[in-house]
């Protein structure tokens, strides 16, 4: 390439990339630069900020564990077996990725609310979900779970079926094929999926607000705390936002590295 003039298309495409980078980065840069380091620490020290961050991390952590435990075998079945309606089911499971969070929240209320599809039965059994921490976890699982399902499904699809058959021919049970062969080979992709789910859960707002409410110290996660503060304590909201940006950026970076490692690993 050295010594050649850039083509007109190359110049235009590079400008487009610059525009995208600027457009996406500007609000993020503004948040970080508007937050003076001293003020950041002061407003973060307030107990409601720390409580909100704690709720976000605890809720997201529990949600990821549930999603990984149930979603990983589910994705394996979707990736490795053929059955009628498989494509439709895959699409349905990805629906929460594109739904407006408000619709997700309404859906959860319609299902688990007091007058909901199964909410009445739950209440009779003494379980009341809405406005509890458990409701936060349910909302996070619903909205963020599909990230892991989707990533895990493609990670399992990338595993050579002949290798799984070879494990069966070597005497492995189906559980052994899954745990000893498929999971280790798909591990980077599974890690990327879990990381993306955690990142999405940290950022969840709409479904949590509608289904779990915004009770300080119970269901008010960090993103809800930002929303609560922005009219009364803008610097505080900025500071908390800055923390969320750093955490999310780090998580996305981890997911990227794991996903690219997965691609290398499968080829080997």
């Amino acid at each position: 390439m050295r010594g050649r003039r850039p083509t007109p298309f190359g110049v235009l495409a590079s400008l487009a990339l610059l525009l995208v980078a600027l457009g996406l980065a500007l609000p993020l840069v503004a948040i970080v630069t508007d937050t003076a380091p001293g003020r950041l620490w002061d407003s973060l020290r307030t107990s409601s900020s720390l409580t909100a961050l704690g709720l976000s991390f605890a809720g997201s952590g529990i949600a990821v564990v549930l999603v990984v435990l149930v979603g990983t075998p589910a994705a394996y079945v979707l990736a490795t077996t053929r059955f009628p309606g498989r494509t439709a089911l895959s699409a349905l499971l990805e629906l929460p990725l594109v739904l407006p969070p408000a619709v997700a929240g309404i859906g959860l209320l319609a299902a688990f609310g007091p007058q909901g599809l199964v909410g009445g039965a739950l209440e009779d059994g003494g379980v009341r979900l809405p406005l509890t921490f458990a409701a936060v976890v349910v909302a996070l699982v619903f909205v963020a779970g599909p990230f892991h399902l989707r990533q895990a499904q493609s990670a399992f699809q990338a595993v050579d079926p002949a290798v799984l058959d070879a494990a069966r021919l070597s005497g492995a049970r189906e559980s052994g094929v899954f745990l000893r062969v498929a999971v280790p080979l798909a591990a980077p992709g599974l890690g990327a999926g879990a990381t993306l789910t955690f990142a999405r859960a940290i950022g969840e707002f709409g479904a949590t607000l509608m289904f779990a409410g915004s009770l300080q110290g119970v269901t008010r996660t960090a993103s809800l705390e930002v929303y609560t503060r922005f009219s009364t304590d803008f610097p505080g909201a900025l500071a908390l936002s800055a923390v969320l940006i750093v955490v999310s950026a780090a998580l996305l970076l981890v997911a990227r590295v794991l996903a690219s490692r997965g691609e290398d690993g499968v080829r080997a």
Binding site: D160, A162, V163, D165, A166, L169, V181, L185, G265, A268
Partner: peptide, 8 residues
Amino acid sequence: VQELALLP
């Protein structure tokens, strides 16, 4: 098997 399919 022809493709060998060793566990990578």
